[in-house]
């Protein structure tokens, strides 16, 4: 069947600055709105932490394993306190900046590195392209967790090593997607047109291929943020990620594990934070994908109706 709806695609769907249009589209998806609100809270938490707006984080023997929801206490203790009497809410906020920070830096490095390598492999092909793809295959051939464990065991667990190991193990996914997209865009007529005008490879990659590949890559990155967070939590849980006294949500879950029967909140709240954040990233990623795909726009529109 011929695509009857495409025959009627309107000439113009985005009027005004892109940000207004995005906000309007966001309003069409209540789940995405909820996700955005949660992420906003997380971002605010990171800011309060970095500006040292938080008060008390001292060890306090009085508050050891204080249960949550005791609203008679200072607000920092509303989510209870850990075995050393440190307020859990403050610890959660501090952990947020490590957890999210590691996830964002990791994803950005694999996004930039993977996109560049993938676009090069896709556009030029040949020996360079083959080499890049074979390295990908090798990385993908090992279970990610194993590679990460091995790497961190060899080089020692530190934040920078964690970021490097995670970035490298995630990179093949970006390379493959970027390469596949490039192979498709490379054959588009507008690339031929640029070549007829005398555009060289650098020009074509910069002006035509990268901007066309970018939306897909950003979507992939937003999905990956959640994955990397879970991964970091897992590694920290195993003792190869973040080392005390630094703190991340994964580490907090690991530390809380021993108290599961006596002080459930120690593992529960960081676990909840991981779950809500990953879910929010995934929901927003899904929304982002729809927004960037004109053939899916009606989903956003008809829901508003």
């Amino acid at each position: 069947m011929t695509d009857t709806s495409a025959e009627f695609l309107p000439a113009r769907e985005r009027r005004g600055p892109r940000i207004f249009w995005l906000l309007r589209a966001l309003a069409g998806d209540p789940m995405a709105v909820a996700a955005a609100i949660w992420l906003l809270i997380v971002v605010l938490a990171i800011f309060t932490d970095s500006l040292s707006l938080l008060g008390d984080n001292r060890i306090s023997l009085k508050a050891r394993n204080l249960p949550p929801f005791d609203f008679g206490q200072s607000w920092t203790l509303w989510l209870g306190a850990d075995a050393l009497g440190r307020p859990l809410l403050v610890r959660l906020i501090q952990a947020a900046s490590t957890t999210i920070g590691i996830a964002v830096v990791t994803v950005l490095s694999s996004l930039i590195g993977g996109t560049l390598l993938g676009v090069i492999a896709g556009y030029f092909g040949g020996i360079v392209g083959n080499l890049i793809m074979r390295i990908c295959d090798i990385i993908l051939g090992f279970p990610t967790l194993l590679v990460a464990l091995f790497g961190l065991y060899l080089f020692g667990p530190s934040v920078s090593n964690l970021v490097i190991v995670l970035a490298i193990t995630r990179m093949p996914a970006y390379i493959r997607v970027a390469r596949a997209e490039t192979l498709e865009v490379r054959e588009r007529l507008f690339v031929d047109a640029a070549r007829v005008f005398g555009g060289g490879p650098a020009w074509i990659l910069r002006t035509h291929i990268l901007p066309s590949v970018a939306p897909t890559m950003l979507t992939l990155a937003s999905v990956n943020l959640a994955m990397v967070m879970l991964f970091e939590s897992g590694l920290s849980y195993l003792g190869l990620g973040i080392q005390p006294p630094s703190v991340s949500w994964g580490l907090m879950v690991a530390q809380g594990q021993g108290y599961l029967s006596s002080a459930w909140w120690l593992g529960f709240f960081p676990g909840l934070a991981v779950m809500l954040t990953t879910m929010s990233f995934n929901l927003l990623a899904n929304w982002f994908r729809i927004v960037n795909d004109p053939s899916q726009h009606w989903r956003l529109v008809s829901r508003r109706r």
């Binding site: 709806s5 009627f8 695609l9 309107p10 769907e13 004109p294 009606w298 956003l300 529109v301 109706r305």
Partner: peptide
Amino acid sequence: SFDTASGRIFAL
């Protein structure tokens, strides 16, 4: 009619 991002269009 069809729903599109820029409004309802009447195909027939």
